[in-house]
Computed example of a mutant assay.
Amino acid sequence: MAVARPNGTDHALLYVPGRSFLHRLNPLTKLTLVLWCAVAAFALPPQGTIPLALLAIAVGIFAGAGKVFARRLIFTLTPLSLALFVVHGMLVDHEGARAAFLGLDLSHDGLAYMVRILGRIAALLSGSLLFVCTTHPARLLKALDSHNFPPGMAYVI
């Protein structure tokens, strides 16, 4: 059971109330931007995914969802980064140069692969968190209902 905050918001929601340009956008427009971000995360070269994630983070902070947005992003990406570092940087034997760093035997190719994967995941996660932090679920359901989405599809979304 969720407990209501003094300002009327719900602990179970990641939504951060605000009046920014992003909060005022139609939820379906924001959903389209999330879809674009997801496609761009895989269509862009690896060097383009990290700037995309950084852009989404900057927009999230500018839109006033900074604390919740940043906390969730860090909370999710930190253990994932550590796991990718261990698996690709240390354990997987890539056919490339290896280097010793702080007593660890690291693979250059493995670390580069880790950064590519992490960039894509960061772009996907930051785009979707931006949507969730700036879109109230009731407003999303109203927008879907006004466009005659089937209730089952609205539930999935």
Results as ranks from 00 to 15, higher is better:
S126W: 05
G119H: 13
L14S: 01
N148G: 04
H11T: 15
L35R: 02
H94R: 11
T134C: 11
P137E: 11
T78D: 02
L33E: 05
G18S: 11
G48Q: 09
F75E: 13
L111Q: 08
D105E: 13
P6E: 13
M1W: 10
A123V: 14
A4N: 10
F101V: 15
V115S: 08
V92S: 02
D109I: 12
V132N: 09
D105P: 09
P137K: 13
F131Y: 07
H23P: 06
C37H: 05
F131R: 08
L44P: 09
P6L: 07
T49M: 14
L130P: 00
I117G: 00
A97L: 04
L118R: 13
C37G: 07
N148F: 07
L77M: 15
F101I: 15
L13M: 15
S107C: 00
R71A: 10
F42T: 06
R19Y: 01
L104Q: 08
P150F: 03
L55F: 09
D10S: 10
A100I: 05
S81H: 05
D109Q: 15
L54H: 00
S146V: 00
R5W: 13
L28E: 01
F75Y: 10
F69H: 04
L104F: 12
L106V: 06
I74Q: 06
L102F: 11
D105I: 00
L106H: 01
L44S: 07
L102H: 06
R5G: 12
S146D: 10
T9G: 07
C133W: 02
L130C: 06
L55Y: 03
G64R: 08
A122S: 11
S146I: 01
L129R: 00
G66Q: 03
V92T: 12
T76V: 13
L106T: 04
M153N: 01
V156C: 05
A40I: 07
R5A: 07
A154L: 01
F131K: 00
A43W: 13
D145R: 02
L140P: 01
A83K: 00
D145F: 02
S81M: 12
L130G: 07
T32I: 14
W36L: 14
S20L: 03
H147R: 14
L44E: 13
P150K: 14
Y113M: 06
I121Y: 05
L73T: 14
A70E: 03
F62I: 11
D10H: 04
F42G: 12
A154M: 04
V39E: 04
